[in-house]
Every structure is written in structure tokens, then in C-alpha cells.
Nucleic acid binder design. Structure first.
Lengths: 324, 324
DNA sequence: TTGAAAGCGATACCAT
DNA sequence: ATGGTATCGCTTTCAA
């Protein structure tokens, strides 16, 4: 940045004032065609681009959105990340990527977000403590949780409707003739797991069935081991895994066990691999596009869309039945 | 950002000058213990964090690195992205994420990188045209290609040693008794594919064998179809797929075909899924950690490490033989 | 050690 | 339509 090209340089080369250069790069400012051409030519030649730091400073407003993500291991998120980035770009925003190691944003994350005065924060697959939410609020930075609900912080949040999804899954399985069930839990304490678990179990109970329970921690290995630990002489009719990669682990374990009785298996997310012929996994497809749209609407939208809805936003997805 | 908390606010609350506040947040500036305490307390209370935009502006140097990525579909990259982000963070840099749709950086990407005056750019899995490279150079922004080599632009680049890797794979297969081979190509025109293809084919020829050839485009479907299109009465002894997800597609196709003769299959990358029991894919593990380290060294390192090496940097990985 | 003041590169208001 | 100038929040001399 020592070799900075500034509006002054362009002005000098174009033979106009620095103000005029600025106007050429400002939407809806009045500049004569002649000046504009000269400036554009000079800018092109020098490779000039207005300094966003100076611009944001004087405008008292940045065009940066903080994207906080945790779980790169989960193939669900890359596509989400891409979609967020692409959409934000088309809205004129840049993306400050923050990778948080823990389930909860750490102080360094917050400091960076505040230092960059981001116009908003999307927190994917992680949560924020009360203190964190406060720090952001103090600095007037809005934040939305993506795929997480945290009651205490009153942070905005957008998720898939895990409850209705899990109910649908339970009912589908029952209708299919299943009578014994196992739920492979994700990470305990996450809202996604809690909602899926509760709703699945309650629906089953309401219909007169019960579900066994095991933990998979949202990982492939977890799903694999969860099934391996099931008593092979007494396998359930159906398994609901709280996400797709656990379901894949479960499926691979099932295949290895070569059971005589088929076991129905349903995952959650609809990651790209779920449709691979090798798996052909039945799953619940999260309404990713609408979730992202809604998230950005809450964060940056105009008027009523923006701001505080009564509570967490839940969007319905779609049950996709494949071969499992 | 309208509700900005500035060093002035902190100064007022702490009863010192704004300069002193700045000093407290500047490494190695001289402030009395008393002042420091007062300032820190006030800052804490207000939730103050120095404005990075103002800071970068006056310092004439940003702490932002542009990370350009394309292929979110390839499970190889999420982990790379995470590692880059984490490492950069520990070096004090923030990450400006740019998602480029095309194989080659588009003007908008460059404009954003220049506008944010990034301290450097890492281009993952994509290339830059001559014009692009020039625009960056004009603005004094260093860039490194990760996993791509582009001869004409003389851009720095760090890759896996695709040639030696492919040779090793070919020799291993021959040693294993294979006599007929198929290479499933990635995307034509990419340096990774070219290097793998040439080296594999040449090694085979040198040993007196030849290889058939088909294109998979670096996608699961591509790999799947590539195998399905092979004549089932005349399958090769071994297949080398230019990346793991193609290999997985190939493997699933192979499984569906239920051949009597086993076919050896080797992928490339060693993505997490390759080790899943359902695949147990043999593959060539890219030396990701060292590649990232080298990339950042070239971009931001001290002294000799930084800057222009004679040519592209190639790092050796490791052949991992699993069940395929 | 501390405060006052200059200046980073841009925008926008004010004259002209 | 154009140029001059104040200003954004910060770092960094320069005096005190």
C-alpha cells in the first residue's frame, strides 16, 4: 500500500480536480461527459480504484459483512458460504471471513468484527454469548444466527424448521410400517439437535411408539460408531440421523453389517453427496436459498423486513425420499 | 457505524487525551501504568475497539488478505480455507473472501481487491489473466496462485508436485502387476490436470505401457460417467482419477457394475471422505499444511522467503494406499 | 509521559 | 459542472 494510487494522481493525469475524480466514481454525481472520459481514461491507465478505507471512513459506513463460520468439516456449509458470498457481492458488500474454532464466538472474533465496523454479522453454525451480543449491540452492529437459536441473547436467528421436519420424518417412517426407531443425535446442546430430537421423539410418542437414542456428534465417525454399537440381533426398523454425514457413517456401518432385515435411514441437510448413487440417502432438504435470503433481509433489508421479528424465524424444507 | 465509539469517547471517559488512548492500543508506545489502566477500563466499558479503517488509512497499510476461491464443490478446499483463515488470523491478518464463479478472476474481483488495498492475495484453484496480474502489480499487491501454475503471468505459485506424484502412482500400479490403465482427466486446460496427465502417461510409456483416457471434469458425476462409459467386457487393471471425488464417482460406478475382475483405483487429494470405510480410497495426499505455509511465506514472509522464486514451487505429498 | 496538531484518501458542502 | 475545504478516526511527530 506504499505504492498507493490516489484520486490525486488520477486528477493530475486527467487535468481536473480531485473532487471531480471522486464524483466520477460516485453514483449520481454531476460530471460533464468530457471530464468523465478523461478521468476514466486516466484511472484505467493507472489502475486506480477508490480506496475503500478512506471511503468507509468518511461515509461512516462500511460495506463489509462479517461471516462467521465454524464447521468446515460439514459439507453442508461450503455451498452456504458460497451463496452468501455471491449474494452479498451482488448487493455491493464484501465479506470478512471469520473462522471460529469453538462453538461460541471468542473475544478475538468480536474484536475483529468491531474493529472492521462491519455492517452486519452472520453467524453460521455457532452461537454468541450474552456478552458477545452486548458488545456488538454497543457498536451498533446487527447480527443474525444462521441455523442456531439462542434464547438468552435475543439475537435474530434463521433456521430450518427442525421441529416440523422431524415430525414429518417420524410420520413418514410410521406410515412406512416402521415400528422401532433409533435417533442418532448431533452435538448435545446445539439448538438444531435439540429441536430435531424433541420433535422426533414426541411425535413418535404421540403415535404410540418410542425411540432409542444414541449420540453421533454430527460427524461421519460418530454415525458409523453409533450404528456399530447397536445390538445387531435387535436392529431398529428405522434410523433418523440428525445430519447427513452421520447418516452416511451409519449407512456404511449398516452395509458392513450385512443385515438380513433392511433398515430405513433418513438424514438431514441434503448435502451433495446424499444423492450420490453410492449412498442414495433419504434426507430432509434444508431450504438453504430461502434461509440465506431471509438472513440477509433481516440484516440489511429495507423497512419492515429488517430488524427484530417476534422470535426465531423457521423455514420449512422438504423431505426427499431416495433409496434408504 | 453511525453509533461509532471513537478514541475520543474513551479519552473523555478516561480523562486523558485521545493521543493517549491511541498509545494504549499501540504496541510499544510509552504510556504510564495509571493512564493505561484508566483507558483500558473506559474502553472495556464502552466496548471500544480502534477503527481498522482509520488505522489502515493513516498507516498506509492494511491487515487484510484477499482469499479467492472457486471450487466449493470440491471437499478438498474447505479444510484449506479454514487453515488459511486460522493461520492468517494468528498472523494478525483479516480475510477478505472472494468467491469467483469462473476459472479466471473477473474484473469485479480485482476491483474489490484493489479497493480494499489488501496486503496480498491468495488465489485458490483459479487463475489470473495477464491483465489481472498487471492491475495487481500496478497497485503493489503481491499474489500467489495456490494449486495452479500459469506460465504467462509470472505470478508466484505453490502447488503439489503433480508430476512426481503421478509418476509414483504409475510406478506403484505397474509394480502391483497392472498392465492396462485408464486416466480420468480433470478439467482440461488446468495446470493440475495437465501435469498429472502428462506425467502419468509418460511414465507408463517409458515403462512400455499405454494409458487410455477419458474426461471427468473434476466432478463426482464426471467420474461416475467416465467409468460407466468404459467397455465393461474390457476393463483396465487400474484407473487413476485426477482427484478424489471423481475417483469416488468411479468407485461407485465400478461397484454398480459388479465386475468379476477387481480394478485398482487411485485418486488425488486425500479428502476426508477418502478414508471413510465405504470408500477406503487409495489416493495421493497433498501436502496441504506445507503448501499453505509456503504460500504465506512467499506472500508475507520476511527477507529471502518472500518474493520471487525462480519459478513455481512444487511440494511433494505422499501416496496413501488403502483398499482400492 | 502527555497533549496538540498534521495528515492518510476519500466524500460532500459551498462557492463560483 | 467544477475546485476548494472541512471532515471521518486514527497514528505519529513535536513541544512541553
Amino acid at each position: 500500500m506504499d505504492k498507493q494510487i490516489t484520486a490525486h494522481d488520477v486528477a493530475r493525469l486527467a487535468g481536473v480536480s480531485q473532487s471531480t475524480v471522486s464524483r466520477v466514481f460516485t453514483e449520481g454525481a454531476s460530471v460533464s461527459d468530457g471530464s468523465r472520459k478523461k478521468v476514466l481514461k486516466a484511472a484505467e491507465e493507472l489502475g486506480y480504484q477508490p480506496n475503500e478505507f478512506a471511503r468507509s471512513l468518511i461515509m461512516r459506513k462500511t460495506r463489509l459483512i462479517g461471516l462467521v463460520m465454524k464447521n468446515v468439516d460439514n459439507p453442508f456449509y461450503p455451498a452456504v458460504l458460497k451463496k452468501f458470498t455471491a449474494t452479498l457481492r451482488s448487493m455491493g458488500y464484501g465479506v470478512l471471513l471469520i473462522d471460529t474454532a469453538e462453538d461460541e464466538l471468542c473475544p478475538r472474533d468480536i474484536e475483529q468484527l468491531i474493529a472492521y465496523k462491519v455492517a452486519g454479522v452472520v453467524i453460521m453454525d455457532a452461537t454468541a454469548s450474552f456478552g458477545t451480543a452486548e458488545a456488538l449491540k454497543k457498536n451498533g452492529i446487527p447480527a443474525v444466527l444462521f441455523n442456531r437459536v439462542v434464547e438468552e441473547t435475543a439475537l435474530l436467528s434463521v433456521s430450518c424448521d427442525n421441529r416440523s421436519a422431524s415430525r414429518e420424518i417420524a410420520l413418514h417412517l410410521i406410515e412406512d410400517g416402521c415400528e422401532s426407531f433409533v435417533y442418532i443425535a448431533g452435538k448435545r446442546g446445539t439448538s438444531t439437535n435439540l429441536e430435531r430430537e424433541q420433535s422426533f421423539t414426541e411425535t413418535l410418542q404421540a403415535e404410540g411408539y418410542r425411540s432409542d437414542f444414541t449420540v453421533g456428534g454430527y460427524t461421519y465417525d460418530g454415525g458409523f460408531k453409533a450404528v456399530k454399537n447397536l445390538p445387531s440381533e435387535n436392529m431398529p426398523d428405522a434410523i433418523f440421523a440428525a445430519n447427513d454425514i452421520m447418516a452416511m457413517g451409519a449407512l456404511d456401518a449398516l452395509k458392513e453389517m450385512r443385515l438380513q432385515k433392511p433398515v430405513r435411514l433418513i438424514g438431514f441437510d441434503d448435502i451433495p453427496m446424499a444423492s450420490w448413487p453410492g449412498y442414495a440417502l433419504s434426507t430432509y432438504k434444508q431450504p438453504v436459498d430461502r434461509m440465506i435470503e431471509k438472513t440477509l433481509g433481516l440484516l440489511l433489508g429495507e423497512g419492515e423486513e429488517r430488524g427484530t421479528p417476534a422470535g426465531p424465524v423457521y423455514l420449512e424444507g422438504e423431505l426427499i425420499i431416495r433409496e434408504t
